[in-house]
Design a protein around this nucleic acid. Sequence first.
RNA 1: GUUCCCAUCGUCUAGCCGGCCUAGGACAACGGCCUUUCACGCCGUCGACGGGGGUUCAAAUCCCCCUGGGAACGCCA
Length: 464
Amino acid sequence: MTKVVTRFAPSPTGHLHIGGARTAIFNWLLARHFGGTFLLRIEDTDQERSLQEYTDSILASMRWLGLDWDGDLIYQGRRFDIYNGYIDRMLETGHAYWCECTPDEVEQMRETARERGLKPKYDGRCRERGLGPGPGRVVRLKAPLAGRVVFEDMVKGTVAFDAAELDDMVLRRADGAPTYNLAVVVDDATMGVTHVLRGDDHVSNTPKQVLIYQALGLPLPVFGHVPMILGPDKKKLSKRHGARAVIEYEQDGLLPQALVNYLVRLGWSYGDQEIFALQELVEKFTTDNLNSSPAAFDPDKLQWLNAHYLRETPVDELARLTAPFVKAEGFDVAPERLAALVPLFRERASNLADMARVMRFMLVDAAALEHDPAAVAKALTAEGKAHVAALRGLLDQADPFDKATLEKVVHDYVEQGGLKFKQVGPPLRVALAGSLGGPGLPEIMEVLGRAETLARLDRAAALG
RNA sequence: GUUCCCAUCGUCUAGCCGGCCUAGGACAACGGCCUUUCACGCCGUCGACGGGGGUUCAAAUCCCCCUGGGAACGCCA
């Protein structure tokens, strides 16, 4: 088997979105699975809309996702000479011709065709005129008038189009720049790309590209078109659906493993398995299990996966990842303290931003702690406050001030008083946390420390 | 409009070279267990082969039609 070469070819007109990210992941996986090469090409031939900052952003997202590429980045913008060389070759071999029709004229032809219920296309007016170069002229492909254009698709099987459906597409614009389809073919061929896995929206480009390959006498790669990702409402993914660039998911506190895992499972499966480590994906990914029907994006499942990976991440690393989010909440917390906090909250959050939010009550001063009025009314009754006050004295004696000791102090208090834990747990909790939910009491007190714990208990006595 | 693609629970999907499917798993929802609480975890419930024709002893699985969705029809990528 020849070496597999795949590529991802984003155009730097925006950030990397999840659809593109999935395509990138699939190509990366295909190359890595077969020990092949994964190339990255920036399709910046549209000088107007292409921005360097987007290239940078796309690269940053690729790295964040853990997708490394082989060799240097390829910029289409720097390869115009190569494209023009191939276009000249087609001109020489009679596979292309000069055309002087203006965009308006061509639009007129399309309009006419549409009115007649036909496929809008260029009518081939200049095909046999034998025109040479000249201002305002473009080069068009002399496409076959009849026959079928057939290609094998890794996900859809055999796909065929009537050649009559295709028109003489422009290869070189009036300004001398090559068009997308020409550039893609020349690039893929010269880069040695063997497998072109891309979005569904390119299926109808494929026969056009096949024609160019044939005109150039170049071998065809294997094509594969993965269905698009739909929004949760089954409609095309759009801004309305909230975050969609991978950078936004990063900012929302998602872990890259979760996004990768989720995206891969959207359109690909391996039996009933849901969780895949990156290395496992490399081992198991092949093109045969790609799904051919479009998939709707499900934020809930993404969060579930993220929560899973949150619990898998080592504490120190999780603390490091959470730091920026805690900072965004307005707190400057030492790494060691964050590492002590994280184990109490990792199971109570599904992403890093959540985590920072949910541990907020641990970071404020006793004086600034907010108490949920309903919880106060329910638990900090006269009896509740009495227990809190009694506990304050006992807890002050705890030595060492650690989880085990603290637990014993509270336990003994309940035992000796002939009480039920339900009588002292809730008031103590509201005093410490301000609400009725959260981590275990002993661990909260341990991380809070003696002074802060006592301060909170004192403050609770004054509440209500 | 034309062409191409797609069609299993609300969602992601397994199954699809026909029988092992009274259709399996996961997310969500709901209920329970665990637990001082919340969460995690565990157990369970609800829930789908779009419709119609064929082929066959037998169809979610093969064929055709319909319907429904999507994409593309640029001197954008």
